[in-house]
Amino acid sequence: MISGDGEGGSVEMETETTAAASAAVSATATAAATATATAAATTTAPDALLTVEHLSIRFGGLLAVDDLSFSALPGEITAIIGPNGAGKTTVFNCLTGFYSPDVGRLLMRHSDGAEVYLERLESDQIARRGRLARTFQNVRLFPRMTVLENLLVAQHAELMRGSLYTVGGLFSLPSYRRAQQAAVEKACRYLNLVGLLSRADEEAGALAHGAQRRLEIARALCSDPVLLCLDEPAAGLNPSESKTLRHFLRRICEEEGLAILLIEHDMGVVMGISDHIVVLDYGRKISEGTPEEVAGDPRVIAAYLGEEDADDGSTSSTAATA
């Protein structure tokens, strides 16, 4: 047994640093019982923006996601963590329509009462009707367009209407000019927020990696989402960029009232900003709860470190941050 006779120390966390966070993961805590209870329960909060219920998808013999249920609340950051190959990105791919799940329901409940089942929609409708935006592990900008144009693409629906489906745009009618101006203003607001306003006319492909990541988030925001799915936004960022990102995500979450769904390996980011964490391993949810609860859950520790190493403190910090 791993957890039964562990040290009963309380889980204290300094959420700003990765070292502290991983230390928290490694602390064998007594919160096991409560964490087990949360993991087993299907959390379907009535005010949830996104409710995933019994999501399962199989690729040949591999059950990539197995009966996963969780929900994301507006104004909160929900992190999905787990070892490599746990099925995190597969969940995102189901949400954005790349995969259609074998079983399960992906329900978006908007503030106006509209209910949208994402699994029934095509990718482009998920963006428009589900109001869900996504970024990728490897940045996917339109590299041969300018920074500003990247953001205008995200607002094309308003612009198409404003331009009377292109005809007006060609002759630059007042309605198109107004729509264009509104779109540019909105783009500039988000560019300012991510600190790229001065580079609006540069080609997106020429930006540095960190700036490309920020631009990708700004572009996602321009499509007017209520749920923002970020796939490893801190990957490849240096510590100071990563810190800025944390503040930025917290800020847009609070100011725009967005829900953020986050896949991240950087435990400093995850523990620092998440309101709620879902832990996957081999496609199954093994734990769920606040950062403190999850960090203390012996099953999470086991999944990250391997069972036999669970009480070996020396390997824990490297493995948990990896």
């Binding site: 954005t96 790349f98 095509e122 990718s123 482009d124 409708q125 998920i126 963006a127 428009r128 935006a133 996504r134 990728f136 996917r140 900008l141 339109f142 590299p143 041969r144 367009m145 144009e149 205008l152 693409v153 995200a154 094309h156 629906a157 612009l159 198409m160 404003g162 331009s163 489906y165 292109t166 745009g169 060609l170 198109y176 572009r219 499509s223």
Partner: peptide, 21 residues
């Protein structure tokens, strides 16, 4: 025009373009 931007976006990354609606 917005149509042209859409075309260029599809040319460069169809998946991403569809995710932006």
């Amino acid at each position: 025009t917005s149509l042209g931007r859409r075309q260029r976006a599809c040319e460069q990354d169809k998946v991403m373009a569809s995710l932006l609606g």
